[in-house]
Design a protein around this nucleic acid. Structure first.
Ligand code: SF4
Ligand code: SF4
Lengths: 131, 131
DNA sequence: CATAACAGGATAGATTTTATCCGATAGAGA
DNA sequence: TCTCTATCGGATAAAATCTATCCTGTTATG
């Protein structure tokens, strides 16, 4: 029912980077400022990087920077990057995941709820959270 | 992000019982009809019983029956009984669960989303699902 | 009082979560 | 070019949670 710590960290991390979208920031700084275990954060940033939410810079003076403007990154994007699509039940993503779905009257509840929640989270852009 | 199998089973189980709200049904029957492992279901029914969603009858001719009318049982009630309050993040239930919540601009998103989702699920009564 | 059916506690395998570590790689600057 | 720094990516693992089963005890029926 809940997002994982990993995803929460990811959101906090993007939130921090959104505060200085033009600077390259080291893992170590984000880790300290946002209270996220450094080695774990490094792994999370790799996922965000593959999802094109952040860009990485290696070597001396390296670090991370948002790959897009904060107004073009939603909370939903970050969740997708770390733990896949939002859904409150397996059948909301893929009906076939449940052998019971053909006979199931509850199924549409999850499909519709997913649509609602996804819609809300897609509308939460990081530009809204900057201090 | 997702409800557990246990909760899905619980919902299916209440759904089945809602189809015959005045009969006492054995675990074995629910198990077979709804494709739920019997011993697991027995445990789940204990939780539903403690939550006053079903009533149990012991001894010969025993089994389970809804403790209320289907129109007075919501999906939210069942989720609460098996895995506690609906929330997409720890801080949506209790701000203090996260040491970062005082400084956190994302926090209100989860509080508001929780309210929305809870509202939707509270409105899904089992009377709506009867065939 | 024999039997049927639930109650509740103990247990355990599988999976997921939450990390950590290390060798490899790439870039900046001397 | 050489060195230093910071990320990359894979391996690893402890802890927590999920999923499920079993067994003993209790209760009610006929
Ligand atoms: S809601 Fe119905 S279709 Fe979806 S997982 Fe549960 S039983 Fe299957
Ligand atoms: S959203 Fe903010 S307050 Fe909530 S858990 Fe994450 S960091 Fe903490």
């Amino acid at each position: 029912m809940q997002i994982t710590r990993e995803t929460d960290y990811a959101i906090r991390c993007v939130y921090y980077l959104a505060g200085k979208p033009d600077e390259v920031t080291m893992v170590d700084e984000i880790s300290k400022e946002m209270c996220i275990p450094k080695s774990f954060l490094a792994k999370i940033l790799q996922k965000l990087s593959r999802a094109k939410i952040v860009r990485s810079y290696r070597g001396v003076k390296g670090g991370f920077r948002l790959a897009k403007r904060p107004e073009n990154i939603s909370i939903d994007d970050v969740i997708k990057a770390t733990e896949g699509p939002v859904a409150m039940n397996i059948c909301a993503i893929d009906k076939k995941q449940c052998g019971f779905s053909d006979r199931c009257k509850i199924h549409p509840v999850w499909v519709s709820l997913r649509k609602d929640v996804e819609g809300i989270l897609k509308n939460k852009k990081f530009s809204q959270f900057i201090a």
